[in-house]
């Protein structure tokens, strides 16, 4: 299982803060996971589409599409940050 977290506007759009997911077959990178989640359709498709500015962290480190995702990882999706 991987733990997925969603923050800020993305959490609101998806109406989901966290979920546990059995890593789907063939999904082994951040890019593939995002694509798979967008495949749920509806708001998931809209919010996670490639033209949407979405940041991803794997195990609390900023990640890119190529970053590997493995069982037991924590993967977070969020908009560009606006602190400070």
């Amino acid at each position: 299982m991987v733990k997925l977290l969603y923050f800020a506007r993305l959490r609101e759009r998806l109406d989901c803060a966290t979920e546990s997911l059995e890593l789907p077959a063939g999904v082994s990178t951040v890019g593939a996971l995002r694509l798979w989640l967008a495949g749920r359709g509806g708001e998931w498709q809209a919010a996670l589409a490639q033209d949407q500015s979405v940041r991803v962290a794997v195990n609390q480190d900023m990640a890119s599409d190529a970053t590997p995702v493995q069982d037991h990882d924590e993967v977070a999706f969020f908009p560009p940050v606006t602190g400070g």
Binding site: F7, A8, R9, A57, M62, A76, F78, P79, P80, V81, T82, G83, G84
Partner: peptide
Amino acid sequence: IMDYLKTQAPFWKR
């Protein structure tokens, strides 16, 4: 530190 915090640290303002 401040410049990087603004672009790297995961905070969001509403």
